Simulated assay, not measured.
Amino acid sequence: MTGVHGRVGDDGVAVVTIDRPQARNALDWDAWESLGRLVAELDRDDVRAVVLTGGDRWFSAGGDVTSMGSRQGSGVTGPAARVRLAHRVVRALTGCRAPVVAAVEGFAIGAAWGLVLACDLVVASREAFFLAPFAQRALVADAGLAWSLSRHVGHQRAAELLLVGARLPAVRAQELGLVNRVVEPGEAGEQALELARGLAAGPADAVQLTKALLCRAPQLSLDSFLDEEHVHVALNGHSPDVAEGRQTFLDKRPPRFR
C-alpha cells in the first residue's frame, strides 16, 4: 500500500488522494514515487481537471521524517535523494496540461505546502494552516517552497515563513494570494471538486494553453512572453470551441463545449 490513489470520473475530473492516516498523510519514499507516477499518468486528453486532496481531516504533514534515512543515493548529493522524488511530483503538477486544484483541510506542512503551491488553484478550510518548519529541524526547504513563496509574497515574507517557521492560517494565506477560496471546515474537497468540474466543462484547449502561459511567464521577459502568447493564441484559433464561444455570445445561451 503506497497510501496514494486516484480515479477519473465520467466528467473528466481526476481526484488524487493522499491516504496515509496513520502518518497524518506524511509521504514516505513509496508514496512520493506513487504520487509522481500517478500525476504524470493523468496528463492525457480525457483528463480535463485534477483535484489533489488529503481527505477530510488534513492535507499532509509533508515528508515522512521516520523514513528519511531509509534510502539514500550515492555521492555528495546522496542525502537529497528523496528530494528528487518531491521534485518529480512538483514538475508533474506544474507540467500537467489540465488545471490542478488543491483541496486543503487541516494543514499542509513542509513539502506538502510545496505541492499545494505547485497546483493552479487552492481551496482551503477556514481552520486549515500552512507551515514550513524546515530550519527548526536543521533542514533546507524543499519541494520548490523557497521559489514559490518568494515569487508569490516577496523575499521578506518568504524569509519569515521559511526561516522563522511562522504558521500561516488559511485566511491570511488568502489575503497574500496563496489561497483562492476559503470554505467551512469539511467542505474543501467538495468545493474543489465543484471548481474542477466547472473547469472540465469549459473549453479544454483555451484552459490548457492559458495554464501553459501562466507557467512560462516567470521564466520570460515581456518581449519573449508576448511572442509565446502570439503562438498560443494562434493555436487556440484552430479549436472548434472558439466558434462555439462566439455563437454562445451571439445567441445569449450557455456554451456547449466539446
Rank of each mutant, 00 (worst) to 15 (best):
R91C: 07
Q174Y: 04
G110Q: 10
L117E: 08
R137W: 07
L145Q: 14
L115N: 12
H87W: 12
W113E: 15
R82K: 15
A102S: 06
V101E: 11
A124C: 05
F130M: 05
A141W: 03
A86I: 07
I109Y: 12
P169A: 02
G154V: 00
R137E: 15
A158F: 04
V101H: 15
V164N: 13
F107I: 02
V179W: 07
W113S: 08
S150V: 15
A112I: 06
H155D: 10
A128F: 00
V123D: 03
D142A: 13
A143R: 04
G177T: 07
Q136W: 11
V171T: 12
A111Q: 07
L176W: 05
G165F: 00
A143K: 03
T94V: 12
L115D: 10
A128R: 02
V83E: 15
H87A: 13
L161H: 05
E175M: 10
D142N: 11
G110C: 10
A86K: 04
R157K: 13
V179I: 06
Q156A: 14
R181V: 15
H152G: 11
V140N: 06
V123I: 04
S125Y: 02
G186R: 05
E175P: 03
A124P: 08
R97D: 08
R172F: 03
V100R: 10
A80D: 09
S150W: 09
G75H: 00
R137Q: 14
T94F: 01
A80E: 11
G165P: 01
V153Y: 01
T77I: 14
A112E: 01
G144Q: 03
V140P: 11
V182R: 05
R167N: 13
L161R: 01
L145W: 01
A81H: 11
G165M: 00
L145F: 01
V83K: 13
V171N: 09
R181I: 14
A143S: 04
V104C: 02
V83H: 14
V104A: 08
L121E: 09
G165I: 08
S148E: 08
R181D: 13
H152S: 15
V76H: 04
I109G: 11
E105G: 02
V76L: 12
P169Y: 06
V104F: 02
G177Y: 05
Q174F: 03
F107D: 12
R82F: 14
L117V: 09
P133N: 00
V179G: 04
W113A: 08
V116E: 00
V123R: 04
L121R: 11
A173I: 07
L93P: 13
L93N: 10
L145P: 15
S74K: 12
C96R: 11
R97P: 07
V123Q: 04
V116W: 05
P169C: 06
S125P: 02
L145E: 10
L178Q: 03
V123C: 02
V101Q: 11
